[in-house]
Computed example of a mutant assay.
Amino acid sequence: MSAGPRQDAAPPAPDAAGRIMQCVLAGVIALISVGLMVSLHRLSIDVLGLALPLGLVLGGLFQTVASIFLLAVTGSRLPVLVLACVWGIAVMPLAGAGAGGGVLMPAVIGGRMQVSGWIVQGLGVLIPFLVALAVTLLRRRRR
């Protein structure tokens, strides 16, 4: 019998170029996510007189799928963490009170506080960190 590769052996770690490409992929997905979540975060539908925050649900779902996708494609938590960090940095110009920021994510409309802008920022950053934490805890539990 020939001694083939072990089935339970871990795949080889990527080299520096592989890690850079993982980070580039995460950065591109983060920019797409920022555009999607910021443009849709105030979308809501009325069901039986109740306004459901469809934009926040879709944005949270997209960010969750993006985090799991990066984890599944790369097998590493690094791109998921890069997704969270780049998302936080990329949303800053849109969330501020400067040119465009007050229009896309206003703090107050008609005297009413707009918490959906704060929620979308929390979802964009916290979801990838929670996915990375869950994977870390699951990997430690297996050991």
Score class of each variant (00 low, 15 high):
G59L: 00
P53R: 01
I32Q: 03
G110S: 05
P53H: 00
M37A: 14
G124R: 06
R142Q: 08
F69R: 09
P79V: 01
L130E: 07
D8R: 09
R6I: 10
A9S: 13
L71V: 04
V131S: 05
P11R: 13
G27L: 09
M113H: 10
G49F: 09
L54W: 03
A72P: 06
V38E: 00
A16Q: 07
P14K: 05
L137Q: 14
R143E: 04
V24N: 06
A99I: 14
R140E: 15
M1P: 12
M105T: 10
I127H: 00
L54G: 01
G18K: 08
P12S: 10
L137G: 11
G55F: 00
L58C: 03
G18W: 06
P128M: 02
A30T: 10
G4N: 13
Q114R: 12
D46N: 06
P79W: 01
L40I: 10
L40C: 11
G88R: 01
D15C: 04
L104V: 08
A9W: 11
S67F: 02
V115A: 15
L48C: 07
M37N: 14
L81S: 08
A134T: 11
Q63V: 15
V91L: 09
S116A: 13
S116F: 10
G117R: 12
P106E: 05
S67L: 02
L31F: 13
A107H: 11
P93T: 10
H41F: 03
M21R: 14
L43T: 14
M1R: 07
Q63E: 13
D8S: 07
A9V: 15
L48D: 11
S2H: 11
L70D: 01
P128V: 05
M105Q: 04
V131Y: 10
G102C: 10
M92R: 09
V91R: 06
L48N: 10
G75H: 07
S67I: 06
L36H: 13
P14E: 03
G122S: 12
G98Y: 04
I68R: 04
L126V: 12
I119H: 04
L40H: 09
L43H: 08
I119F: 03
G111D: 11
V135I: 07
A17E: 13
F69N: 05
G55D: 00
S39D: 10
V80M: 04
D46T: 06
G88A: 13
G122Y: 06
A3P: 02
G117F: 14
T64L: 15
G96N: 13
L25E: 14
G102N: 11
S116R: 05
R143Q: 07
A3V: 12
R139D: 11
P106Q: 09
V91I: 12
M21I: 11
L83D: 00
A17I: 11
I68K: 04
R142V: 03
F62S: 07
C85M: 13
I127L: 01
A90H: 05
R42D: 14
L83R: 02
L130T: 12
F69A: 15
C85W: 07
L133W: 12
A72C: 09
